[in-house]
Simulated assay, not measured.
Amino acid sequence: MRLDLRSKSFGTRPVLGALVLDVAAGERVALLGPSGIGKTTLARIVAGLDRDFEGVLEVPERLAMVFQEPTLLPWRTALLNVTLPTGADRETARRLMAEVGLAGREEAYPRQLSLGQQRRLGLARAFAAQPQILLMDEPFASLDATTAARMLDLTARLLDDSGAGLILVTHDPAEAARLGARPLMLSGSPAQLG
């Protein structure tokens, strides 16, 4: 995946300056920097959710995103939250749910799951899409330290098993290190990769 960005602005306010983000197959990178610097904006551009920028984006066919919030369909069961958006069959969805520790919760609705369980369901959904690149935007925020550590280990194992590349948005260099992600620092105004 490659982004050759010339600029990104919100109205007249420049947010991101010229930068190149290049992630090879299986490579893991972490976008670091202070809050409000443009990390999420950069991830949204790569995900194709923000097309209002100057530059060229080349992404692989299969890309999945895990947001800060689980973004689950509240009116669908956990199993359907995996199969509907990804097209995965039920067997694959059940296997991934078991891998993230949600075996037996297939018929539960998101409101019946804890925040940690919802985040694990979001992770299962992302891997059900068989992504070549996984984008994660502060996925461990607001989790207690023990749950966050388990989620980091689970994510690392799923990445190892799938061979997917990773773009992680985080403010925590320790998260990047735990996932074996090469740190890339966003700084300046407009922000650039340093």
Results as ranks from 00 to 15, higher is better:
residue 62 R to V: 05
residue 115 L to Y: 15
residue 119 R to L: 04
residue 37 I to Y: 02
residue 163 G to E: 10
residue 96 L to G: 02
residue 193 L to Y: 03
residue 141 A to C: 08
residue 112 Q to P: 00
residue 29 V to A: 08
residue 10 F to K: 00
residue 38 G to Y: 05
residue 68 Q to F: 11
residue 193 L to W: 02
residue 23 V to Q: 05
residue 65 M to Y: 01
residue 78 A to K: 02
residue 170 T to R: 05
residue 12 T to L: 12
residue 150 R to E: 15
residue 157 R to T: 13
residue 82 V to Q: 03
residue 59 V to K: 08
residue 10 F to E: 00
residue 59 V to N: 01
residue 61 E to S: 13
residue 72 L to Q: 06
residue 38 G to T: 11
residue 28 R to G: 03
residue 152 L to E: 11
residue 56 V to C: 04
residue 182 R to H: 11
residue 125 R to Y: 04
residue 73 L to V: 01
residue 100 V to G: 01
residue 190 P to M: 08
residue 77 T to W: 08
residue 14 P to V: 01
residue 84 L to S: 03
residue 27 E to C: 11
residue 61 E to I: 02
residue 44 R to G: 02
residue 56 V to K: 13
residue 64 A to Y: 03
residue 72 L to Y: 05
residue 147 T to K: 02
residue 55 G to S: 04
residue 178 R to D: 07
residue 162 S to A: 14
residue 83 T to P: 00
residue 78 A to F: 03
residue 66 V to F: 01
residue 15 V to T: 08
residue 34 P to S: 13
residue 38 G to K: 09
residue 186 L to V: 07
residue 49 L to Y: 01
residue 129 A to T: 08
residue 172 D to E: 15
residue 94 R to E: 15
residue 157 R to Q: 15
residue 183 P to T: 12
residue 181 A to W: 09
residue 77 T to N: 10
residue 11 G to I: 01
residue 80 L to V: 06
residue 128 A to S: 06
residue 125 R to G: 04
residue 12 T to Q: 14
residue 17 G to F: 12
residue 9 S to D: 01
residue 87 G to S: 09
residue 29 V to R: 09
residue 158 L to I: 11
residue 45 I to C: 09
residue 29 V to P: 00
residue 122 G to V: 00
residue 126 A to G: 03
residue 103 A to K: 14
residue 124 A to Y: 01
residue 121 L to R: 03
residue 30 A to S: 08
residue 176 A to R: 02
residue 13 R to L: 12
residue 4 D to P: 00
residue 169 V to Q: 04
residue 22 D to A: 10
residue 154 L to S: 10
residue 126 A to T: 05
residue 34 P to R: 15
residue 122 G to H: 01
residue 162 S to D: 12
residue 10 F to P: 00
residue 103 A to V: 06
residue 154 L to C: 08
residue 132 Q to T: 13
residue 118 Q to I: 07
residue 103 A to I: 05
residue 85 P to G: 11
residue 56 V to N: 10
residue 107 E to V: 08
residue 162 S to T: 14
residue 127 F to P: 07
residue 49 L to S: 04
residue 110 P to A: 03
residue 3 L to G: 06
residue 3 L to H: 04
residue 7 S to H: 12
residue 47 A to V: 07
residue 150 R to N: 10
residue 174 A to V: 15
residue 191 A to C: 06
residue 48 G to D: 05
residue 175 E to S: 12
residue 16 L to R: 13
residue 22 D to S: 14
residue 105 R to A: 14
residue 75 W to S: 06
residue 26 G to W: 02
residue 69 E to M: 06
residue 87 G to K: 06
residue 62 R to L: 06
residue 11 G to S: 07
residue 194 G to I: 12
residue 193 L to F: 02
residue 144 D to R: 09
residue 27 E to G: 07
residue 185 M to K: 13
residue 87 G to M: 07
residue 167 I to P: 04
residue 81 N to A: 10
residue 16 L to T: 09
